[in-house]
């Protein structure tokens, strides 16, 4: 997830290794709900016959997760944080064919 650049750090550890946390801002969250494209669904249905990776779904979920992270980071930046620690992901099927991708963590300021 290098696209967020050098100035903003995200990690799923409790601290940023090698750096000192100076301030805590609290929880930040980001989420997105996505449904599959009907065309992709049909293609995946065909791929389901022989098994293996369903690339369309992999990409869809990967993009959705990036979007959730972006929203989480936007929230953290608006608080004045320069890092998010202890990031967790969760995925839930909220309706038929739709899934929520959710990312959350603790916004902090590191030296």
């Amino acid at each position: 997830m290098s696209e967020f650049g050098e100035k903003f750090t995200i990690s799923n550890t409790e601290n940023i290794p090698g750096r000192q946390v100076t301030e805590f801002y609290g929880i930040v969250t980001g989420s997105t709900v996505r449904a599959k494209h009907i065309g992709k669904d049909i293609l995946a249905g065909l791929k389901n016959l022989v098994g293996g990776e369903l690339k369309g779904y992999t990409e869809l979920l990967g993009e959705a997760r990036q979007e959730a992270l972006r929203r989480m980071i936007a929230e953290a930046e608006s608080m004045g944080a320069n890092a998010v620690v202890n990031v967790r992901f969760s995925t839930s099927s909220i309706a038929q064919g739709a899934a929520e991708l959710f990312a959350y963590g603790t916004a902090v300021r590191v030296e």
Binding site: S2, T13, P17, G18, L49, V50, G51, G52, L61, R65
Partner: peptide, 23 residues
């Protein structure tokens, strides 16, 4: 003893399914 010089989140994912026979 690891001298850390930077860090960041990394992730990898894949969606897999069974074939018709196995299903």
């Amino acid at each position: 003893d690891w001298a850390v010089d930077g860090c960041g989140l990394v992730a990898g994912s894949v969606v897999v399914s069974l074939d018709y026979f196995k299903r």
